Computed example of a mutant assay.
Amino acid sequence: MSLLRAALRSNSTFPTLRECHGFPPLLRATSRIFFSSEAEQPPQDPQAESFLRTPREGLAYGRLLGVRNYTLKTDIIHFLKGCNLTTEDVKVDYGRYFTPLAMMLQFHSYNDYDRAVRHIARNGRLYRLDRTDRAQWDVVTPYDGKTILMRGFPRNALIDEIERFLHGYEYDQTSINIFLRQGETFGNPVKMATVRFRSRTEAMSAFITKNKTFCLNSPISIMVLQ
Rank of each mutant, 00 (worst) to 15 (best):
M104I: 05
A116K: 03
A157G: 01
V67W: 05
R134K: 15
M104G: 02
T174W: 02
Q106W: 00
F51P: 02
D75I: 10
I176R: 08
M204T: 11
F214M: 00
L64K: 06
F153Y: 04
R118V: 13
E161Y: 03
N217K: 15
P55D: 13
T209H: 08
A7P: 01
R115S: 15
S10C: 02
F165P: 01
R155C: 09
E170Q: 15
Q106L: 14
L85W: 05
L216I: 04
A60N: 04
M192A: 02
Y61K: 14
I77S: 09
S50Q: 10
Y61E: 00
R115C: 06
T141S: 04
T201G: 13
H108P: 08
F153D: 00
R28P: 13
M204A: 14
Y70P: 07
G66R: 06
T86W: 05
S218G: 03
N69L: 08
Y143D: 02
G145P: 03
M223T: 04
I76Y: 03
S221D: 11
E88V: 06
T30F: 08
A7Y: 08
G82T: 06
S109Y: 06
P46H: 03
C20F: 13
K73Q: 13
P55E: 11
G66I: 05
A39V: 13
K212G: 04
R122M: 10
Q47K: 10
F98G: 06
Y70R: 07
S36M: 14
Y127E: 14
R18F: 11
D160R: 11
G82S: 03
P46L: 03
N69W: 04
K210V: 11
E184C: 07
A206L: 06
L149K: 01
